Amino acid sequence: MTSAPPPFADTVLLTRRCVMRPWQDSDVALLPSIASTRKISWNTSNKFPYPFGEPEAQRLLRFSNDGAGEDVWQFAVEFGGELAGSCGAIRGTDVQAHTATIGYWLGVDYWGKGIATEMVARLVDYMTLETDIEQLTATCYGWNPASARVLEKAGFEREGVRRGVVKKWGETTDLLIYGRPLA
C-alpha cells in the first residue's frame, strides 16, 4: 500500500543550496525588505507592485494559500537561511486545467548566482512527480534575457512571442512564451 503525499502545508523541497517551502504568516514582515524594489517589479506583473509593503505581502500570502496543493503551488525560497524569493505554479482553468503557469522572482542580492535555475528545475520535478499537471507554461519579458535563460536551462522551449504586448511604466516590450511537457 502506498502512502498519500503529505499535505501541501508540510511540503518542503530542497535544491543544492535552497529550501523551498509554503509561505508562512511570519514571512509577511520579511517580504517588503527584499521585494520592494523597482528592479523586481520591472520584471513582474502589476500584481507585484513597487513599492511593495505589508499589505502587498499579506495579499501574496492569501493568494499563495488559497487552493494550495490543488490549484496553487507557491513556495517561499530560502537561501542561506534567509528569505530570498518565490517560485510557484498556478493551475490553468477550463480546458487548460491539465496545465499550470509558473512564475518566480528573487531579491536583487540573489541575482546572477544560479539560484533561479535551481528553484525552477526543482519546481518542475515536483510538478512532474507530485501533481496531475501535464504541461507547464512560463512567460518573461523581452527586456529580461536572464529569465529566458533560466527557463531554457530548466528544459522549457520558446513557443512564441507576442510583440509589444507588455507595457510597464511607459515602456513597451515583447512577451516571450515558453512551454514544457511533463512526461
Rank of each mutant, 00 (worst) to 15 (best):
T2E: 12
S3I: 15
P5Q: 11
T11E: 06
T15E: 07
R17M: 07
C18D: 08
V19T: 06
P22V: 00
W23I: 11
D25E: 15
D27L: 12
D27R: 11
D27K: 08
V28G: 00
P32C: 07
S33R: 14
S36P: 00
T37F: 04
R38I: 08
I40R: 00
W42R: 14
S45P: 04
S45F: 10
N46L: 15
N46I: 11
K47F: 05
K47T: 10
F48S: 04
P49W: 05
Y50T: 01
P51M: 02
P51Q: 04
F52H: 06
E54G: 04
E56M: 06
E56D: 13
R59A: 14
L60G: 02
L61N: 05
F63S: 07
D66K: 15
E70P: 02
V72G: 02
W73R: 07
A76V: 07
V77T: 06
V77W: 03
F79Q: 10
G80N: 15
E82C: 11
A84W: 04
A84M: 01
G85L: 01
G88S: 09
R91I: 05
G92N: 01
G92E: 02
Q96L: 10
A97K: 13
H98A: 03
T99W: 13
I102D: 01
I102K: 05
Y104M: 00
Y104P: 00
Y104H: 02
L106Y: 02
L106P: 07
L106N: 01
G112W: 14
G112L: 07
A116K: 05
R122S: 05
V124D: 03
D125N: 03
Y126M: 04
T128H: 10
T131D: 14
E134D: 12
L136M: 14
T139A: 11
C140M: 15
C140E: 12
C140L: 10
G142K: 13
P145R: 03
P145V: 10
A146F: 02
A146I: 03
S147L: 08
A148H: 09
A154S: 13
A154W: 10
R158D: 07
G160C: 06
G160E: 04
G160F: 06
R162Q: 11
R163V: 13
K168D: 02
E171P: 03
T172N: 03
T172L: 09
I177R: 12
P181M: 08
A183S: 12
